[in-house]
Amino acid sequence: MDLKQPAMAGTLESSDIQVTVVPNPGGGIAIELDSPVKAQFGDAIRDTVRAVLAEFGVEEARVQLLDQGALDCVIRARMQCAVCRAAQISYDWSREDRRP
């Protein structure tokens, strides 16, 4: 899936994460992470970001993450929202029915 525009989701409040997703034609996936728990959870955060992009079939995106200690489910939610906004689609919730 192609991203049409840069989009943002989330805030800079504690326990939240501000995600910016930018189209990155020809550049693959690039992730910039700023987090107070980078040492402990940096890899886990990147894995979640990649997983969400893969679920949407996004192969080219620049992702900037300003993390304030968000839990994994929050990162997932913010990423899904940012991708939908960047691709200008509304989410098809029936996709959730196919999740194990």
Binding site: A9, R76, A77, C81, C84, Y91, E96
Partner: peptide, 15 residues
Amino acid sequence: KDAARFLVYQAVRWH
């Protein structure tokens, strides 16, 4: 509204 849906879904469905 869209952001809240994603967040609430995660919270209720998985946590």
